[in-house]
Design a protein around this nucleic acid. Structure first.
Length: 343
DNA sequence: AAGCCGGGGAA
DNA sequence: TTCCCAGGCTT
């Protein structure tokens, strides 16, 4: 690393960033002294979420909760409603918990370590927020940084510690916040996963992957667990507008509301799971409304939705926070009401 | 260290 | 289809 010409390299990337960097709503304010609430909401929202998709959720969330005090004072159901559809709902629950801590403390964290102590803030987010809001010299390491460093140094299998070490060594201590944003922008717009635009890259003169002639081979694809096929049955009691909903507990969609559902045991017929579900609810199953498919990172879920009858309280679906899965299931009833699929 | 957690965009 | 996304928490 000591052989790298750091000053010209840093100047090249920062000049590119000052010219081509993305104009994003959470980047308003002085470099290294950004509004901590806006930056924080953005960082949590953008965890494993592409910037283009995060933009809409960001505006919606800030409109619902303009300040950390407003967020802290809100019921968690309202926070999840604002997060609805964005996925990884533990992010919203942790953000809400952390807002109460910050609000009670009366000030935002003033160091990397203080940011790191908040629920939902890990090494990446603490580095990002301390550099963006406090100008702290902390290098971020995310998916973009991993890819940029792997290519830059010609490393096919970069370990997290290795990536962090590269990022630490390159970080421009004069402009840590801008440097972090610059590396991430480069990864998102130039050093892209499939077809990197090396001709437009300010780091091309020093890039080992470009010199290899096949930059897209760096880093090697991550080994992923095979997608598991899961089947379940659900009951729609009521209508798509007013239905009986249950609060999901546990890690999967925890905190969200949804149709009562029951997974099929291995080898089990849907009717058996349906009978178990009806038994639990004291409900009578009606006709099959339809079937929805829902893909998640490690599962592919097939949900059979039946109409059900029971003496259970209905609630206004529009006001509840629902996963996409349940929105698809409810859409079966809306399609029936519209006469598209007569039952 | 490895597994798990949503949902969708890009190629 | 496959791969990945401004990661973090739990076990």
């Amino acid at each position: 690393m000591s052989s790298l010409p750091l000053p010209p390299l840093r100047a090249a990337l920062l000049a590119w960033f000052d010219r081509e960097g993305r104009d994003l709503p959470w980047r308003r304010g002085p470099e290294g002294a950004r509004d901590p609430y806006r930056a924080w909401v953005a960082e949590i929202l953008l965890q494993q979420t592409q910037v283009a998709r995060g933009l809409g959720y960001y505006e919606r969330f800030l409109a619902a909760f303009p300040t950390v005090q407003a967020l802290a004072a809100a019921p968690v159901e309202d926070v999840l409603k604002a997060w609805e559809g964005c996925g990884y709902y533990a992010r919203a629950r942790n953000l809400h918990r952390a807002a109460a801590l910050v609000s009670a403390q009366g000030a935002f964290p003033q160091s990397y370590g203080a940011w790191l102590a908040l629920p939902g803030v890990g090494p990446y987010t603490a580095a990002a927020l301390s550099s963006f809001t406090l100008n702290a010299p902390q290098a971020v390491s995310d998916g973009n940084v991993r890819r940029v460093m792997a290519r830059f140094r010609g490393e096919r299998t970069p370990s997290p510690a290795w990536v962090q070490a590269q990022a630490d060594a390159l970080l421009d201590p004069a402009r840590p916040g801008a440097w972090n944003e610059a590396v991430m922008d480069l990864g998102a717009t130039v050093c892209t996963p499939k077809a990197p635009r090396c001709a437009s890259c300010p780091l091309a003169p020093w890039c080992a992957a470009r010199a290899s002639g096949a930059p897209a081979n760096f880093p090697a694809p991550k080994v992923r667990a095979p997608v598991q096929a899961v089947q379940a049955v659900a009951l729609l009691i009521g209508t798509a507008g007013h239905a009986y909903l249950e609060r999901r507990e546990g890690p999967l969609l925890g905190g969200l509301m949804g149709l009562p559902a029951e997974p099929l045991q291995p080898g089990e017929a849907p009717e058996a799971a349906l009978a178990r579900l009806c038994g639990r609810l004291g409900a009578v199953a009606g006709p099959l409304l339809g079937q929805v498919q829902h893909g998640m990172t490690h599962r592919h879920l097939t949900l059979q939705v039946y109409r059900g009858q029971a003496d259970l309280p209905l609630q206004e679906v529009r006001r509840a926070a629902l996963a996409r899965l349940d929105q698809k299931a409810l859409a079966l009833e809306e399609a029936r009401q519209a006469g598209l699929f007569p039952v």
